[in-house]
């Protein structure tokens, strides 16, 4: 298996670039999706509840 330097650079500059841009976009869209807001707000406040027993 002999990977040339040029091949790796090409891969990094093409696939690698779009892969990371794509991932960033997916994460930002997921985090900012309006209908997720309620879920996130609930998650952030749920840990503050005093209840210290597992739900049965």
């Amino acid at each position: 298996m002999d990977i040339a330097h040029g091949t790796l650079v090409w891969l990094a500059k093409s696939f690698g670039l779009f892969y990371l841009i794509g991932l960033s976009l997916i994460v930002v869209i997921y985090a900012c999706w309006p209908s997720n807001r309620q879920k996130f707000d609930r998650a952030a406040t749920a840990i503050l509840e005093e209840e210290d027993r597992p739900w049965q």
């Binding site: 997921y30 900012c32 996130f40 952030a44 840990i47 503050l48």
Partner: peptide
Amino acid sequence: LPKRAGRPIFSYRMSIV
């Protein structure tokens, strides 16, 4: 930190990003 401060995390979205 949120638990001790008694306040939810400032931005849950930012924590995900």
